[in-house]
Amino acid sequence: MRGIITFALRQPILVVFLTFLVGIAGVVAYFYTPIEAYPDVTSTRARVIVQWPGRSAEEVEKFIVLPLTQAFSNIPRKRSIRSISLFGLGVVSVLFDDDVDDFFAQQNVASRLSGVDLPAGASAYLEPPYGATGEIFRYVLKGARPIRDLTALQNWVVRRHLLQVPGVADVVTFGGEEKVYEVQLNPILLDAYDLTTLDVVEALSRANINVGGDVIEQGDQAYVVRGVGLLEKIEDIENVLITLRGNVPIYVKSVGKVVVSAKPRLGTCGLNEADDVVQGIVLMRRGEDPSTVIPLVKQKIVELNTRFLPPGVQVVPFLDRTELVNTTVKTVLH
């Protein structure tokens, strides 16, 4: 201690200069250090969600969860593996050590997931890295349009633009109806033409594709040949050829009718007086600052309402974490 005091007395200019530098560093840290009102203290995690429609929990456990668990068992710096098997759904969560970053966890799980041979009809999804406090914004899509159209706008326009905002991990959709084209077959007509439902399904599968061709060269020019066969409207589906009976074509419209319908709904979402709305939940990536991400989300919503959404359709926010974060930070600082 005496040596430090002696050095400070002999070098006053150096001591004043160092004190000045420390003061500047403190001021910079005060204004630029990010403040998280609700820090995420959960462990680093990578979660894989697999959907296998129509399968029992036992089948999901045997053919989905166990192979994934075995593939993830030797990931480096893994702490534990947890899983849930439900009807048509399997969830496998890999927990890592506290000092492992999300990029390392996501990369290792994704590389092992690509090497697992899942059964036909099963689709796997690697959940983005967000924590328990990642929900920062909620909104509804309002407009004088059918609920199916609003759902399509949410999934194909709004969600895609919000995912481009820096710091956003995912945008989850609640409520709405997903539009589908439904073929209602007449069993009497099927029996009359000696056809089965499988024949119709195979015919629709063969018709709903684009086929690549070759190139035709004429002089200095080349023309690309391709077959366009994707079904776009009801008439296209009705005119799909199933088979021939005595040189007479049998179309889909010969054995049934095509209507616009929706997938079976497992529930509805309501807000205040509205019983059926399309809601979106914006989730923030782990480690991001909500005071920075939320203003960018609001800016993107203004852009959506003014440039991309059709007239009469608006994104209307109803839950914003900005006020809660500001109030919490103010309380802590004072």
Rank of each mutant, 00 (worst) to 15 (best):
S73Q: 14
I216P: 09
G256Y: 02
G175R: 07
N74Y: 02
I237D: 03
L150I: 00
V116N: 06
Y125F: 14
T327V: 00
V224P: 04
S43I: 01
N210D: 15
F20L: 06
T306E: 14
A122S: 10
I84P: 12
F137A: 02
L189F: 04
Y130E: 03
I242G: 03
V200T: 05
S85N: 11
V224E: 12
R145G: 02
L319M: 15
A192F: 09
S205G: 07
T151R: 08
L241F: 01
A105H: 09
S85R: 02
P310W: 07
V28G: 08
D320H: 07
V211G: 13
R159K: 13
D97R: 07
V168Y: 09
Y38H: 01
F72H: 00
K142M: 06
A71V: 00
V224S: 10
I234N: 00
Q299S: 15
Q154V: 00
V228L: 15
V91P: 11
I188C: 03
N210M: 04
I5V: 07
L66P: 04
A169N: 01
L18R: 00
L241E: 07
G213M: 07
K330R: 08
G280Q: 05
L66Y: 05
I234H: 01
I147W: 08
L150V: 01
L195T: 07
D289R: 13
D99Q: 05
L333W: 10
V277A: 02
E177A: 15
L185T: 12
T243S: 03
